[in-house]
Design a protein around this nucleic acid. Structure first.
Length: 423
DNA sequence: TCTGGGGTCCTAGGACCC
DNA sequence: TCTGGGGTCCTAGGACCC
C-alpha cells in the first residue's frame, strides 16, 4: 500500500493559544516572547504583516509594537503544552497512527483511508477548531517532505483554505514544487540553500530533478533523502510509540549577567533539579552529566565558554546526587572575573531506571533514593512545581538567576487558581 | 629504498528542526 | 540598556587496537 501522510500544523500556535482564552485578540497583531521576554517567537498574521520577523529581539521592534498597538505576551508553556495535548487527542480520532512531531505539528498515517482525502483533511481542520479553538492547516502527500510542502501552501493559499492534498494529480504536485523556494523545504536551512542556489537550484522542482551525485557530495545522505522524498519515495516513516530522549538539557540565559559563584551554583543546582525531574518522568537515569557556563555570546570582549563532562559511578536520577556532581563540575569550570550570561546542565547516556544491575551497595542506595524522589515528585505535582526543593537551589527571596516573564497570561487550563472567569 | 589497513569508539562541530 | 530553549542526526578526525 502506498504511504499517505497528513501533516497537521497549528497556525501561529502560541498566539492562537492566547487567543482561545482572550477572544478580544482576534484580528489584532499579537506576539509571544521567548524566556526573559528576549525575542519574538510567535506572531499573528497581523504582526507578520507589520514586518515583525521571527526571532527578532524585542528591543529592536519596540517602536513597531508601540505604533501598531501590538499585544505582547510572555511565553506560557504550561498553557501551550496543555493545548497541544488537546489537539493531539482530537487528531487521534482521525487516525490510529499519529506521530507527535513537535508541540504544534503532527503527522497522521492515512494510507489505509478510502475516500476523498481533501474532504477528510477539511473535516480534521474543522473538528480541531471546534473542539480546541486552534486553527490548523493540513497537507497531504505520499512522503513527509511533500506533506510539509502541501501544508505550507495550504496555510498561505486563499484558494486552498487550509487544506491541500497533493496525492491526486502529478501536475498539481509539480506546480506546488515549482512555487516552493529551496529554503522552504524541510531539511534545507541557510547553509544548504546557499549551496543549492550557487549551483542554480532555486526551487523544490529543480531540486527534485537534480542529479543525485551532485546533491550527495555536498549534502550527504541527508540531502539524498530530501531529494528522494521530493520524488515521492518515502524515506522517513511515521515514528510512533513511546520515544525515549537521547539527552536531556536544562539551560537558561540570565536577564542580567551574573559574576558570583554563589548565584551561578544556585542556578546550576536548580537546572540539575529540573533535569532530574524530567529524567524521573521518562523513567530514565543518567550515566553522564555535563555542566556548561558562558558569557554573553554577543559581547565583544571577555568572552568565555567552558563545559565539563563527567561519567557517573552509577546511573542515577536522584536530585541530590546529581546536584553534587554538577557542583563539582561547576567548580572546575567557574572562573572569577567573568560576567556570565547563561548556564546549563546536560544528561547523556540515558538508561531505563528499572533494570540496572549494579552492586549490593548501589541497590540499597537506590531503594532509599527512589522512595525519597517519589515523595518529592508527588508533593510538587500536588502543590505545584518547587513547592519543595533542594536548599542548594537558593533560599534567598531574590534569586537573581530566575527567568523573567513580565507579560505572562494566566495558566488557564493547568492551575485551579488561574481558571478563566465567566461573568 | 621500500613504512599497512581496517575496524571501533569517542568527541567536536556542523546542519537542521520546532 | 535590551538577543530563547531543547532537541536530532551526520560526518570528520583522532585514539586505539589487532
Amino acid at each position: 500500500m502506498a504511504p499517505v501522510f497528513a501533516l497537521v500544523d497549528c497556525n501561529n500556535f502560541y498566539v492562537s493559544c492566547e487567543r482561545v482564552f482572550n477572544p478580544g485578540l482576534a484580528g489584532k497583531p499579537v506576539v509571544v516572547l521567548s524566556n526573559n521576554d528576549g525575542c519574538v517567537i510567535a506572531r499573528s498574521n497581523e504582526a507578520k504583516a507589520i514586518g515583525i520577523k521571527m526571532g527578532v529581539p524585542l528591543f529592536m521592534v519596540r517602536d513597531l509594537i508601540k505604533t501598531h498597538h501590538v499585544h505582547v505576551y510572555s511565553s506560557n508553556y504550561a498553557l501551550y503544552g496543555d493545548m497541544s495535548r488537546r489537539v493531539i487527542e482530537v487528531l487521534m480520532q482521525f487516525s490510529p497512527d499519529v506521530e507527535i512531531y513537535s508541540i504544534d505539528e503532527a503527522f497522521l498515517d492515512l494510507a489505509g483511508f478510502n475516500g476523498n482525502l481533501a474532504d477528510y483533511g477539511r473535516s480534521i481542520r474543522a473538528t480541531v477548531l471546534t473542539w480546541t479553538g486552534i486553527p490548523v492547516s493540513v497537507g497531504i502527500a505520499g512522503t513527509k517532505t511533500l506533506a510539509k510542502i502541501a501544508g505550507h501552501i495550504a496555510k498561505k493559499s486563499k484558494k486552498a483554505d487550509g487544506v491541500l492534498d497533493l496525492t491526486t494529480s502529478s501536475y498539481q504536485r509539480d506546480a506546488a514544487l515549482a512555487i516552493t523556494d529551496v529554503e522552504e523545504i524541510w531539511g534545507v536551512g541557510r547553509g544548504y540553500a546557499g549551496f543549492l542556489r550557487s549551483v542554480g537550484i532555486k526551487n523544490a522542482l529543480e531540486l527534485r530533478d537534480a542529479p543525485e551525485n551532485l546533491i550527495k557530495k555536498r549534502m550527504g545522505i541527508t540531502g539524498l533523502r530530501i531529494l528522494r522524498e521530493l520524488r515521492g519515495v518515502s524515506c522517513y516513516p511515521l515514528e510512533q510509540g513511546p520515544h525515549s530522549p537521547q539527552e536531556i538539557t536544562v539551560s537558561r540565559s540570565f536577564k542580567h549577567p551574573l559574576a558570583d559563584a554563589a548565584d551561578l551554583s544556585e542556578a546550576v543546582a536548580a537546572y540539575t533539579s529540573r533535569g532530574a525531574e524530567k529524567l524521573r518522568q521518562e523513567h530514565l537515569e543518567a550515566n553522564v552529566l555535563a555542566v556548561f557556563l558562558l558569557t554573553d555570546p554577543y559581547g565583544k570582549k571577555d568572552r568565555y565558554f567552558n563545559m565539563k563532562t563527567v561519567r557517573l559511578p552509577f546511573a542515577t536520577n536522584d536530585t541530590g546526587e546529581l546536584i553534587g556532581y554538577a557542583h563539582s563540575s561547576f567548580d572546575e569550570i567557574y572562573r572569577k572575573g567573568f560576567l556570565y550570561k547563561k548556564a546549563g546542565v546536560i544528561f547523556r547516556e540515558l538508561s531505563p531506571d528499572n533494570c540496572t544491575q549494579t552492586s549490593l551497595f548501589a541497590d540499597h542506595r537506590k531503594e532509599k533514593s527512589g522512595k525519597i524522589m517519589e515523595a518529592f515528585d508527588s508533593i510538587n505535582s500536588r502543590f505545584g512545581r518547587d513547592s519543595i526543593r533542594y536548599a542548594a537551589t537558593g533560599t534567598a527571596g531574590d534569586r537573581k538567576w530566575k527567568t523573567v516573564f513580565q507579560w505572562r497570561s494566566p495558566s488557564y487550563t493547568t492551575d485551579w487558581n488561574q481558571l478563566p472567569k465567566v461573568s
